[in-house]
Amino acid sequence: MSGNRDELLARRRALQLRQQRDAQRNRIARELAALDQAGASYELIWPDAVNAIWIGQRFPQMGSRIDWSAVPDVSVQRWHDGQDREQLCRQLLRHYAAEETAPILAVWGDAETPALCMTAAECARHCAILLDADFELWLSSTSAAWLMEWQAEGVVYAGRLPPQS
């Protein structure tokens, strides 16, 4: 009897996880469809796995935000429209990810939304889709120590992780 119960509980947990994943994926379904239609290559990273690879948590924090005033050589730039924003995104990717071979991680402002891993070239090619998905977007390397934070107010912060003391 215990075997049946254990099996039923395992099936129930698997179903709950599948339903949770479906709900999480639906948060960016429009963007995923646009990326798929454009032939983009990416890997979906489930929210519970993002913290293991997201460099943002290693940056100085102030509450739940990154304390950019504590980041040396921070770049703060504004954009005025979607075209400016896309051009600025490509420019910053060229600057920070020029030598990048590791994937770029795109993390949106909602902890329940999956993140995406893609090459810097794919990220630059599809930056409009990524930036339109949410009010906030963080782009970071999965191996180097840089991060960009795109905010809805028309501001992007970018910088490298301060050296360890």
Score class of each variant (00 low, 15 high):
132 D>H: 10
154 G>I: 12
7 E>I: 13
4 N>C: 13
7 E>W: 15
94 R>N: 11
94 R>Y: 11
49 A>N: 12
35 L>R: 08
112 E>I: 08
78 R>Y: 08
44 L>Y: 09
113 T>R: 10
31 E>H: 10
47 P>S: 00
27 R>V: 07
44 L>I: 12
100 E>A: 00
144 A>L: 13
148 M>N: 01
123 C>L: 06
88 L>D: 02
118 M>I: 02
59 F>C: 05
18 R>E: 10
115 A>L: 05
100 E>G: 00
37 Q>N: 11
153 E>G: 04
163 P>H: 07
108 W>T: 05
122 E>N: 04
67 D>R: 06
11 R>S: 08
82 G>V: 13
116 L>P: 04
108 W>M: 05
136 E>V: 09
13 R>I: 11
120 A>R: 05
17 L>E: 14
117 C>E: 14
92 L>W: 04
31 E>T: 06
127 C>Q: 07
121 A>F: 11
163 P>Q: 10
43 E>M: 10
106 A>K: 04
90 R>D: 01
7 E>R: 14
146 W>C: 02
156 V>I: 06
58 R>E: 10
138 W>D: 15
43 E>Y: 09
28 I>Y: 04
136 E>F: 09
16 Q>F: 08
93 L>Y: 05
9 L>F: 12
36 D>K: 14
78 R>M: 11
42 Y>M: 06
52 A>M: 10
116 L>C: 01
37 Q>R: 15
95 H>Q: 12
43 E>A: 08
29 A>H: 10
154 G>Y: 03
